[in-house]
Computed example of a mutant assay.
Amino acid sequence: MSNQEENKVKVRHAPADVVLVSPEFVVINQLKYRVVTNYRNALDSELLKLKFDPFLDKYDYLVGDVSSDKLRLKGFFKGTSNKINLDKRVETIEDYIYEYLNPGVAFFVLESLTPKKIKVPARNKKRHNEQPVKKTNLTGKVAEKTTKRRRHSFVIKKRDTSES
């Protein structure tokens, strides 16, 4: 295998449409983002074009870090809803940068300016301990059981202790 084949990025989706409008704004797949931070000029449209997955469209903030000419992206949500994991909230971006990125690595933070409506799937309101109620026929005769139940009884006998 040659070096060119090893360095080739495996893409599992179509390349994104990335347009750097200005140093403060970027458009990715017709969604507008504001550049919050571009530390060490990390925002590279070519790397972003290859790495951006449409799955990331749902996030309000994107953090990308470039290490060894490879881009890693992570998404974060606005809000404090209990449905959002703590590690996916916007308040934890700074913690993520300090804990998960190498010191001095180039990174960028993008804020989505396109409002999104996330559909939350409807949950089944039936609780696990609720049972459906069966109708009973109170006017009819009581059905007799066709199988007879054997009744067992136990008798405890005293031991004969007399000597014979």
Rank of each mutant, 00 (worst) to 15 (best):
R72E: 10
R72N: 11
R72K: 10
L73V: 01
L73E: 03
L73Y: 02
K74E: 07
K74T: 09
G75V: 03
G75D: 00
F76G: 03
F77C: 00
G79Q: 04
G79S: 13
G79K: 04
T80V: 13
S81R: 07
N82H: 15
K83E: 15
K83F: 14
K83C: 07
K83V: 07
N85Q: 08
N85M: 14
L86P: 02
D87L: 09
D87W: 05
K88G: 04
R89D: 08
V90F: 04
V90D: 11
T92S: 04
T92V: 10
I93G: 00
E94T: 06
E94S: 09
D95E: 11
D95W: 07
E99T: 09
E99Y: 10
Y100F: 13
N102P: 08
N102K: 14
N102I: 10
P103C: 00
P103H: 06
P103A: 12
G104A: 09
V105C: 06
A106H: 10
F107Q: 02
F107V: 02
F107E: 02
F108P: 09
V109R: 01
L110S: 03
L110R: 05
S112E: 00
K116T: 09
K117I: 12
K117H: 14
I118A: 08
I118T: 14
K119P: 03
V120Q: 13
P121K: 14
P121L: 03
P121H: 15
A122R: 07
R123N: 12
K125N: 10
K125G: 15
K125H: 14
K125Y: 10
K126C: 06
R127S: 15
H128A: 04
E130V: 09
E130K: 12
E130M: 03
Q131E: 08
Q131T: 06
Q131W: 08
V133L: 14
V133N: 06
K134Q: 14
